[in-house]
Simulated assay, not measured.
Amino acid sequence: MITGYCADGTAVVLTPADPPESLRSDLIWLDLVEPNKAEDLMMEKLLGISIPTRDDLKDIEPSSRLYIEENAVFMTASLVFRSDTEIPGLTDIGFILAGSRLVTIRYAEPRSFALFKASMHRFPGNCRDGAVVLTRLLETIADRTAEILEEAVTKIDDLSIAVFGDKAAGKRRPPHFLEARLRDVAGHHRLVAKTRDSLASLSRLLTFVYTVPQVQDDKETRELCRSISRDIQSLSEHAGFISGNITFLLDASLGLINVEQNAIIKIFSIASVVLLPPTLVASVYGMNFRVMPELEWQFGYPWAIAAMVISAVIPFFFFRWKGWL
């Protein structure tokens, strides 16, 4: 689907079934969402440029993601999407500055695009050309990335309380509680890792955007681009800090699992040591030698039972006195 947007956010849908002979002059942003071959050909004819395919957007070479061709600036960035699901991912989105228009090609629905569309009419002086739309859109993407990191911090704090709080309060955890928390840690790590990859991609794109003539010629746009670059840098550092916290939480969870497992092994070890003397007594009187004076005792059986009980009780209280129980 192809949607064109005016400076005030008014939307116009363009379809190959009823193609326009030329683009309206007030359309400053053309958003291509999962375009098919017919839509690509229509836009190439109207704009006079080549529209990158989905495979082109996936190319990781810098020369294939940031370049100028046919008097148009082609850029590709990786953005986080599905951040509120268990499997967040990255989607490659193409940005093209073709004259005074911005063209975006995407095959996913990052929330930042919906937020930007809803707020286009609120920007001071509206979005007068494609360069301004691009920088404002990148600003919204940076804000949305900051929001994703804030949500990740909140969830990680809640997870930390779940891992350490219940045990500190003396509550008994259900079986396999910590093992389930490890899966949560892995999910948060994936989200933060994808966010860091996205921030790295945006940082490289902004460095390139800053050199684009359309941006350099407009002081306000240039300053906004520089401000976004600083925001991306600070967000990258914050993402690194969050990643460190996740690593600590992972190590702590594994440590707690080892402590619980060691406690179980400790119980079995003490039980085996406590039961060893009674086993020795029972083994002695279980021998089948002909000459064993105790076999003739009238109270031999009760004495043997008493000896086994005493030999078990003494190690038990000794371990308890030592604080091993």
Rank of each mutant, 00 (worst) to 15 (best):
V215Y: 12
A282Y: 10
W297N: 08
I305Q: 06
P124Y: 00
L182E: 09
S227T: 03
R226V: 08
R181N: 05
L206D: 02
T195S: 13
P293K: 01
F299E: 08
K322N: 07
R173E: 14
N126R: 11
S272G: 15
S100K: 13
T135M: 15
A312Q: 04
T15L: 13
A304K: 01
T279I: 08
S112F: 14
E296M: 05
G130C: 06
Q261H: 10
S272N: 10
A304P: 03
R136E: 12
L97T: 09
R204L: 14
S50E: 14
N262H: 07
L235A: 07
T247N: 10
I228W: 06
K171M: 02
Q261N: 03
G255Y: 05
L256M: 12
G286P: 06
I305E: 02
S112C: 15
T91M: 04
S243L: 12
T3N: 08
V12G: 05
P277V: 14
D26N: 07
I96Q: 08
R290S: 15
L46M: 11
V12D: 09
A168M: 02
A306P: 05
A180R: 11
L90I: 01
Y107I: 04
A77I: 14
Y285L: 07
F241P: 00
G94L: 10
Y210L: 14
L23H: 07
K219P: 06
R54C: 14
S201I: 05
V209W: 06
S78C: 12
V274K: 02
Q298W: 10
P110M: 03
I93F: 08
R320K: 15
E86R: 02
T76G: 08
I232K: 07
L90M: 00
Q216F: 09
A180I: 03
K194G: 03
L254P: 00
V153S: 14
N245S: 12
P19C: 13
R65L: 12
R24D: 13
T91L: 02
E223Q: 05
D166V: 02
L41H: 14
L23D: 04
K155N: 11
E39P: 04
M120Y: 03
L235K: 01
L159A: 01
E151S: 06
P174T: 01
L138W: 14
T221E: 05
L325S: 09
M1H: 15
